[in-house]
Design a protein around this nucleic acid. Structure first.
Lengths: 138, 138
DNA sequence: ACAATAAATGCACTTCTGTTGCATGATTCC
DNA sequence: GGAATCATGCAACAGAAGTGCATTTATTGT
């Protein structure tokens, strides 16, 4: 992992203490996290600050939002080379019905779909649900 | 369209006045509707009643929920032969960024995805976003 | 270094959707 | 007709998302 503060400055985000903590928390997470997850991870954190921190991160293509159908938006770090900034990085997400965690499957892109005449796709969201590798005992 | 009340009785749902209205409203809709949409369509309707009506419809496989990423769950009638009751009917949904409407593309099934070892898919949700046929002027 | 400016943070509050409890009204069954 | 069951409506709550504003912290220019 590169230096977090240098990385953030390169992205045009001031590396404050809180932001570095959030960044590192997400970096160490293997799964996508909700705002509440992050809030609970730091006892003294204010929800609004975290909310705006994540929004800033999103604007600067440091994290991307994930809507896995649980009703709570989750956040995950963009991978090296994730081009969320320019266009949507159309990898799919997997939500485990057992451990309730959601992971990015960055290697798996959403396949192209032939739409009826007149429909123009600009974005896509594919969420698979089932049992993840850890829960399937493999 | 078959008789709505007979259809509902076959499904095991008592065809009350409100339910028939909701059913007909959804039947006449080309797009998926939110609870608020339905609420606004009938001035004197109570939100709770509509909420439970939709829940009942869902249990009896008359409608299915759609999560198009807008944050509001939408509802659409199940098609003839839609097997939501037995298993998920994995058709995809299209959300228009222009008119904000969401439609079922029942003819388009979600393609099979090869997952990494240990992952077992049980369900899937694919939402494409862009411009619909009406808004693209075709 | 110091003032002026800009950015980040924290608190309070609002809004909106989804949801449940409970009392009342309508329907079915015997 | 009366009991039981189901549907409805009102009120209230929960949780997440979002906004406004004041305060603190950092940056800039001189």
């Amino acid at each position: 992992m590169i230096q977090a503060d240098k990385f953030m400055e390169d992205k045009g985000v001031r590396p404050t203490a809180m932001r570095l903590l959030v960044f590192r928390f997400l970096a160490e997470s293997k799964t996508a996290k909700t705002l509440s997850d992050i809030e609970n991870a730091f006892a003294k954190a204010d929800r609004t600050t975290l909310y705006r921190t994540l929004k800033t991160f999103e604007d600067k293509a440091i994290v991307h939002q994930i809507d896995d159908g649980t009703g709570m938006t989750k956040y995950a770090l963009c991978e090296e080379g994730c081009n969320c900034a320019i266009e949507q990085d159309l990898h799919l997400h997997f939500h485990c019905n057992n451990c309730k965690e959601t992971v990015c499957l960055t290697a798996h892109k959403i396949p192209h779909i032939n739409l009826p005449d007149g429909y123009v796709a600009e974005d896509a969201n594919l969420v698979l649900k089932g049992i993840c590798d850890k829960c399937s005992g493999q």
